[in-house]
Design a protein around this nucleic acid. Structure first.
Length: 422
DNA sequence: TCTGGGGTCCTAGGACCC
DNA sequence: TCTGGGGTCCTAGGACCC
């Protein structure tokens, strides 16, 4: 039996998460901000209607926020990750062939039992997810991932669609593709959209009908694949088991500009600590580390950006080793006299922690010892809260820390903050 | 005053080798 | 005047995604 792609996408995900635990927010305009309370990263439908762009800087929307009494939240990733897990778990119960695509999206492979039954099945999925998690989702159905993505957009576009849109054997597929602009679909970003407009190619239908050679030459392989998928040729199969990550990063903008090396050391050491925790959590060790810093590119002041890359002799997940390398790198790239706004640590060359190459000098015993130390550290920080034990380099004052003025409580993940019902 | 963070893939070009 | 050719590996940069 033919397999059909569906894309389940949570509606305004971060906003919906906030609403689950604060029902007063329903039907109210709500927005969620990026780290550092800098940009708008999630908007309720009410806020979208006001014309607030995704990624808009908050200071540009101050007037609108005040005028419409928009409820504004700092992002609460612990909450969103937990809610995501619940949604994904629900979906996994409803369909075995599933690919978690992002924090708020999953592709499901459905059996083609006819157009009507597919639509009905999607409605069932939608209702179940809402019932079990409180998160509203939309479902798009198509013969490829790209078409399922488009269908999902259509599902959200018109409330009359009731959250589901099915492009399989749709009798006006061409009309749908003609109604969408090239820049609106998966795989065509701003650069390619602009290029296509310059060549008088405006709609998705026009893109779909371009010759393969032209597509390959102008938009390279990814562009050609997008067009093929629009014609129903599967180029992106379902990937049930996602490949392990190749890089993991912890990077931040600072709440206020940082000028002192000492403060940068603290910040970067704490990023290194965090990113090391992440890879250990994923069961990986790092082969290399990159540390970078930079000034505020929006300001008219002296600009500086630099990075430093080093390889480890043996892949490691040992925090002190990782901190030591980032400190060495930081000292090499630091220049006095700049207002630093951003820094980060990126671990690369990730390999499974249990399968590293033994080197010639019999360091295996040492590697094992380091691993045991990290296990104990992680256990304590998991049990008693992160940073119960932390490295002194990471500092305790943290003037550089990001702003998060409007963060909601971690309702679902912390017992002492669980919502009280009386 | 105030502008996020974390990823992937593809390609061109250089280094190096035979 | 003529000044190989092809393979592999690595990296940087650009494009895309949420």
């Amino acid at each position: 039996m033919k397999k059909i792609f569906s894309l389940v996408d949570c509606n305004n995900f971060y906003v919906s998460c906030e609403r689950v635990f604060n029902p007063k927010l329903r039907n109210q305009p709500v927005m969620v901000l990026s780290n550092n309370d800098g940009c708008v990263v999630a908007r309720s439908n009410e806020v979208k209607k006001m014309g607030v762009r995704m990624g808009a800087p908050v200071f540009e929307c101050r007037a609108l926020i005040k005028k419409h009494r928009v409820e504004v939240f700092s992002s609460n990733y612990t909450l969103y990750a937990d809610m995501s897990e619940r949604v994904m778990h629900t979906l996994s119960r409803l369909c075995a062939d599933m690919e978690i695509y992002s924090i708020d999206e999953a592709f499901l492979l459905l059996e083609d039992r006819g157009r009507e039954r597919l639509t009905a099945h999607a409605q069932k999925i939608r209702k179940m997810v809402y019932q079990w998690t409180g998160i509203p989702v939309s479902v798009g159905i198509g013969t490829t991932k790209t078409l399922a993505k488009i269908a999902n957009k259509m599902a959200k576009r018109d409330p009359a669609n009731d959250g589901v849109f099915n492009l399989v054997r749709h009798n006006r597929l061409d009309a749908v593709l003609s109604s969408l602009e090239v820049g609106d679909i998966w795989g065509i970003g701003p650069k390619h959209a602009h290029f296509l407009y310059r060549h008088r190619i405006r709609t998705v239908k026009e893109l779909c009908d371009l010759p393969d050679e032209w597509l390959k030459k102008q938009l390279r392989l990814p562009g050609l694949r997008t067009a093929l998928e629009l014609r129903g040729v599967v180029c992106y199969p379902l990937e049930k088991n996602r490949a392990p990550k190749k890089n993991t990063a912890t990077t931040r903008s600072f709440g206020q500009p940082v000028t002192q090396l000492r403060e940068l050391e603290e910040a970067v050491a704490s990023f290194a600590t965090r990113v090391a925790e992440k890879i250990r959590w994923d069961g990986q060790s790092a082969g290399s580390v990159l540390v970078f810093l930079g000034t505020n590119r929006f300001k008219k002041e002296p600009q500086y950006f630099n990075s430093h890359f080093t390889k480890f002799k043996t892949p490691t997940g040992y925090t002190p080793d990782i901190i030591a390398q980032t400190m060495t790198g930081l000292h090499k790239i630091f220049r006095a006299g700049y207002n630093y706004k951003k820094a980060g640590v990126i671990l690369g060359g990730l390999v499974p922690a249990d399968r590293y190459q033994k080197d010639f000098f019999g360091e295996t015993a040492l590697v094992e010892k380091k691993r045991a130390v990290m296990e104990a550290l992680d256990a304590i920080n998991t049990r008693f809260g992160s940073d119960t034990l932390q490295y002194a380099t990471a500092g305790f004052k943290k003037n550089w820390q990001m702003r998060q003025a409007r963060r909601s409580a971690p309702f679902s993940t912390s017992w002492n903050q669980t919502l009280k019902v009386s």
